[in-house]
Every structure is written in C-alpha cells, then in structure tokens.
Computed example of a mutant assay.
Amino acid sequence: MLGGFITNHELVTQLAIFAPNSSGSAKAKANLTILSAQHTFPLFCGLLRQQGQPPVEARPLESFCSAEPSNGDAVELARLFNKYGSDKASSHDYYRVYAEMLGPLRRDQLRILEIGCGTNNRDVVSTMGKFGRPGASLRAFRDFLPNSEIFGADVDRRILFEEDRIKTYFVDQTSLQSLDDLAAVLPSQGLDLIIDDGLHSPSANVATLIFALKKLKASGWFVVEDVAEESVPVWQLVSAVLAKQYTSTILRGRSGFMVVVKKASSEWQS
C-alpha cells in the first residue's frame, strides 16, 4: 500500500480468486483481475441460461404484496418504523414485505433476528451516520408483534442492548465461526424470520444465508436488504443452487433490491 492506494500487485494478491494465473505486467494482471471480478457472476448466469435454467429475475416489490400500502398492518408497521427512526418505511418500501409476512401472525409467538442493529459510530463501515438510531427496527418489530421475541446482532459492541423482549449479541458476518457462535446463543427451536441488514456485501450476505438455513424453522423467511443492483447476479446464482425446499425471490423496491428466501413447511417432500 503506497500513500493510501493499493498497488497492482497487492490488488492481484488480495483478489487471487479472480486473478489470471499467467505472467505479464502487474498493471495488465490487475486490470484483468478487476474485469474477472466484475464479470464472473453475470457469466455464471449466462451459463445457467445456456443450460436451460433461466435464473430468477428481479420483480417489482409490490408484486410480492397481496395488500395495498393502505392495508392496516402495513400502515401500522410503517408508523412504528418511522416512530423509532428506521428507514424501512421512510427511505424504502420494505415495510410492505414485512407486513405481508407478519401481519397474519401478529398474535403468534414468533422469534425474529435482525443482523445489523444500525450503528451510528462513524468508525464502522456499516454506519448509518451520526443521526442513526441503533435498535430502531428491533423496537418496531417488538411493538408490532406483542407476543414475540426479538433478537439483534451487530459487529459494533458499543450499541448492543437489552430491554423488554429484545436481546442483542455480537456477530462478525465475515466470520463463519462468529455466526456459529451467534447460533449457539439463540433459541434452539429455530427462528421464524432472519433479516440481514448488516454489512451489505455479497460474501457477508452469503455467509449469513449459510447461518440462516441452519436456524430457520419450517415456513421461515430469510431476507437480505439493500442489495446493490450490481450484486443481483450473485443472488441469481445463489437461487439456482439452493435446495428445492427453498424458494428465492429477488424484489426491486422503491430505492433498493431485497432478496427473500422462504423455507418450505415441514410437509415438504423431496
């Protein structure tokens, strides 16, 4: 690293999985490495199409929702997100998806985990900025679901807290061991909904998916928020390799993409 900039050699070394296994100048190899990183997942999707397995295409978020935004559950959940300072209704229309999932189950005893509690410490890469309100969506879910347990996890230990029906834990999404440690302290009965609103990087998202597939109950949901449009091919490939007991949907929201994975009920047969 020279003057705060990564050298061509360092880039090739750090992105070795995408680097050409050939000789040539460091600059040429670095350019090919970047090209490979950008093109590999779209090319996998092209391969799927060629093999007669068209990848899942993103569709409008509203197509997932049977009710209008004026539906009572959607209105109430949006109000709670706004009350506590979550952007799930103000900047995004994610509240409609959660109202669709949770509205019919509001009186049930659910267990929900959200990874990414919303740090406002600016030395953390996933910061919401100084005006962010840690735990906002956890409190909204707690109020919306009066009989449920709400869990949160974040890489910033400084914002972890515990209050009525909410417990939060440390997790580093870049570490499978850390995710396993989180799994060990959560209820063994499994979770009804797991939300990834944390680091927002494809590798961290996929690591959290691996964790989620082990912790979801039958008929449970896994949701990834704020997926970049450039990362959609990653999720098209992931959707293609998931076992048949999982249904994956890619939704295009008002200001971002989200991925929704549904686990089949216990009656599912292979």
Rank of each mutant, 00 (worst) to 15 (best):
S22L: 09
P42G: 06
A240N: 11
N121A: 12
W235M: 07
N71T: 09
A183L: 06
E162S: 04
S63W: 10
A74Y: 07
R165G: 04
F18S: 09
L160N: 04
H9F: 02
R139F: 01
V185A: 08
R111W: 01
F222V: 01
N147S: 12
R158W: 02
G256F: 04
P54H: 06
V171T: 15
L2W: 08
T168A: 05
G116S: 04
K217A: 01
P42A: 06
Q53R: 13
T247A: 12
L32P: 00
F141S: 10
L80P: 06
T119Y: 04
L138K: 11
S239A: 15
F161Y: 13
T168P: 05
A19V: 10
R107W: 08
R107Q: 15
L209I: 15
A37E: 11
L216Y: 03
W221A: 04
V223C: 10
R111H: 11
D192F: 01
A99H: 06
L11R: 10
L47P: 00
S270G: 14
A204R: 07
T13S: 11
P42L: 03
V97L: 15
Y169E: 12
G4C: 05
T33A: 00
D226P: 12
S201G: 00
S231V: 11
G132C: 07
S25D: 11
A212Q: 03
Y94F: 13
E229V: 10
V12Y: 04
C117A: 13
N71C: 14
L2F: 10
S203G: 00
V12W: 00
T168S: 14
S86Y: 00
S266V: 11
V155R: 09
G24C: 05
G3V: 07
G132S: 05
G103H: 07
V223P: 00
V259C: 12
S66M: 10
V155H: 05
H200W: 05
D156H: 00
V227L: 03
D143Q: 15
K27G: 09
A26S: 10
L113I: 08
R96L: 15
G46R: 12
G72E: 15
C65I: 13
G4M: 12
E100K: 08
F44A: 09
T119C: 03
S148M: 00
G135T: 11
N82I: 13
